[in-house]
Simulated scan of single mutants.
Amino acid sequence: MDENWERHADRLAARSLRAGDPTGWFEELYSAGRAGSVAVPWNRVQPHPLLAAWTRERAPDGTGLRAVVVGCGLGADAEHVATLGYDTVAFDVSGTAVDLARDRHPGSTVRYVVADLLALPPDWLGVHDLVVEVYTVQALPEPPRRRAIGEVARLVAPGGTLVVVAAARGDADPEPDGPPWPLTRDEIEAFATGDLGAVAINRIPDQDDPAFARWFAEFRRR
Results as ranks from 00 to 15, higher is better:
150 G>R: 11
139 A>P: 13
107 G>Y: 11
150 G>V: 05
138 Q>V: 00
125 L>T: 09
199 V>C: 05
169 R>L: 00
195 D>S: 13
108 S>C: 12
197 G>Y: 14
198 A>W: 12
152 V>S: 11
140 L>E: 13
168 A>V: 01
174 P>L: 05
198 A>V: 10
127 V>N: 07
153 A>H: 07
96 T>Y: 01
157 A>P: 06
169 R>D: 02
186 D>N: 13
106 P>A: 02
112 Y>H: 12
110 V>Y: 14
126 G>V: 04
85 G>H: 10
84 L>P: 04
144 P>W: 04
140 L>Y: 12
132 V>C: 06
121 P>N: 12
158 P>E: 10
185 R>T: 13
151 E>C: 15
114 V>C: 06
154 R>C: 15
123 D>S: 12
179 P>D: 01
157 A>S: 12
102 R>F: 02
150 G>T: 07
190 A>M: 01
93 V>Q: 06
147 R>H: 14
84 L>C: 03
118 L>Q: 04
112 Y>E: 09
183 L>D: 04
188 I>T: 13
134 V>P: 01
101 A>W: 02
94 S>L: 04
95 G>M: 05
96 T>S: 00
90 A>F: 02
89 V>H: 13
123 D>M: 08
103 D>H: 11
116 D>M: 14
100 L>M: 01
172 A>N: 14
106 P>L: 01
172 A>C: 07
